[in-house]
Design a protein around this nucleic acid. Structure first.
Lengths: 228, 228
DNA sequence: TCTATATTTCGATAATAATTGAAGTGTTTG
DNA sequence: CAAACACTTCAATTATTATCGAAATATAGA
C-alpha cells in the first residue's frame, strides 16, 4: 500500500493557515480576487499571489482573467467536496458548542462579506431594493435605476463619486448561508459604511457578524420596508 | 465562518511524508513500536519519536507503555475513518489501475511485515504450525511446543540463540489483509530469513511483496503441509 | 499618454520544521 | 550489576517555506 502522493500534497497545501483560509473562503462558490483573498487571510497581496500560484499548480484552484482582475475559484466540484469533508472531519470543539452555534447563528443573520453586507440582512436588503425598483439585476451586476439614483442621493450617498472609483461599482455576490445574491462592490461597501455611520448596525467584535440596532430596525423599516 | 483550527492542524500533520507514512502504517489496526514505524517511514528512531510526540499531542495517536516497549496505535475509530476518507479521496490514478490492483493482489498474497512474513502466506504458515502442534497460541504470543522445538531444530533454526536475543521471541501480529494473526518476533524473522536462504521465497523489488518459488512450493508442502 | 489599480515577480529575510548525532532515561535479561 | 535495548530528549544543522518591500507588468479609464 503505497501512499498516493495526492493525499500528502493536498494535505500539505491545506496544512497552512493562510492557504486554508483562502480555500475555505473560496468554498462559498463565488469568484474572488486575489486582493479579497489576501484581505480575508490577513496577508499581503504578494503572499496571497504566492499561495494562489501553488494552489493553481496543484489544480485546486482556477483563474478567470477578466481585464485587470483575476477571479479565482475552486477548480471543480470535487475539490469543494474534499474541503467539505475536511470541515466535516473537524467539528467545532464540543465544549464551546453553545457559544459556537450562537456565533454561526449570528453570522447567518447578518455579517460582513469582505466589505459589504451579507447574510439574511444583506440578501433581504438587496431584495428589498430590487422590489422597490431601486436596483435591477443584470447578469453579474446590479444597475441603479433612475428611481434608485434619486433614492440613494436622498439617502446621502454620492453615486457620482462611487462610479469614479476604479473598483466594481455594484456586482452581485452569492451568499453562502442564504444561497441568494446580495449587493457587493463600491455601492455595497458605501451602503454598509453609511449604515455604520447612521448607527443602524454595529459590528460584533472578533467575528464578522453585525447586529442591527433599535435605531436600525426603525430605519430599515422606514427606508427599505424591511422587518428585522 | 471562522476556520476551525483543527482543519489546518490535522492537514498539517498529514501533509508531511514521514508522518503520513506513520499514520497509514498504523491503519492496519495493530500496535506498532516506534522502531517499526521508523523503519517503515525510512527515518531514524529519533525522528519517528519526534513525529509521534506531535501526533500524540494532537490526539491522533495513543501510546501503550509496556516495559521498555511503547506500542503506538491510532487514538480511535474516528481517526481511522478520517485517514480512510483521505485514502478514498485520492484513488490510485486510473491509468495504472491494472498494475496497481495486481500489486495489491501480490501484497495480499505474501509480503513482509517489518521483518517477518504476512499476507496469505504468513497467516497460512502460522495456522499450519498451530495445526501441526508446533506452536500454541497464548494471548498475544505464540509458544513453541516440545514437538515444535524438535521441528525447528531439525529445520535448522537455533531456538536457543533466538531466545537469548533481547527482542520479543514470538508474538502474534494481526494481519491487515487477512484479519488473522501471524507469527512475528525473532522467530518469525528467523523463519523468513531461512526461507530466503533456502530460496523458497524471493522478494519482489520496490514493493513489500514476496513470491514463493517452485522450490518453495515443494518445501512448504513437504514441511508445512501447505498448498500454495 | 498618464494615472490609478490589480496583480505578479524578484530578492532578501525571518520563521518554521525535519533530521540526525550524542547523550540521557528507564527496562529487561543474563 | 553490567550490558543490551527501546526510546526520548537535547542540541545543532540544514532544508524549506512564508512573508513582505520593491519593482515590474498589465489593464482600464481620463
Amino acid at each position: 500500500m503505497s501512499i498516493n502522493p495526492n493525499v500528502a500534497e493536498i494535505a500539505f497545501l491545506l496544512g497552512e493557515k493562510s492557504r486554508a483560509t483562502i480555500l475555505i473562503s473560496l468554498m462559498d462558490g463565488r469568484f474572488h480576487t486575489a486582493s479579497e483573498l489576501a484581505y480575508m487571510a490577513a496577508i499581503t497581496p504578494q503572499t496571497a499571489s504566492f499561495h494562489l500560484s501553488k494552489l493553481i499548480e496543484a489544480s485546486l484552484v482556477n483563474v478567470d482573467k477578466q481585464g485587470r482582475h483575476r477571479y479565482y475559484q475552486l477548480a471543480n466540484e470535487e475539490v469543494a467536496r474534499i474541503l467539505e469533508s475536511f470541515l466535516a472531519i473537524s467539528p467545532p470543539p464540543e465544549v464551546r458548542s453553545l457559544k459556537q452555534s450562537s456565533q454561526v447563528k449570528l453570522l447567518r443573520e447578518a455579517r460582513t462579506c469582505y466589505d459589504h453586507l451579507a447574510g439574511k440582512l444583506g440578501v433581504g436588503l438587496t431584495e428589498s431594493m430590487l422590489n422597490t425598483g431601486y436596483l435591477e439585476k443584470e447578469e453579474r451586476n446590479f444597475v441603479v435605476t433612475p428611481k434608485g439614483e434619486q433614492f440613494f442621493t436622498d439617502f446621502g450617498i454620492d453615486l457620482g463619486q462611487l462610479k469614479r472609483k476604479r473598483r466594481s461599482f455594484s456586482h452581485a455576490c452569492l451568499d453562502w448561508s442564504e444561497r441568494h445574491h446580495h449587493l457587493a462592490g463600491a455601492l455595497g461597501n458605501e451602503l454598509m459604511k453609511h449604515f455604520l455611520d447612521l448607527s443602524w448596525i454595529v459590528q460584533v467584535p472578533s467575528i464578522r457578524a453585525v447586529k442591527v440596532t433599535d435605531k436600525g430596525k426603525v430605519g430599515f423599516k422606514q427606508h427599505f420596508n424591511m422587518n428585522i
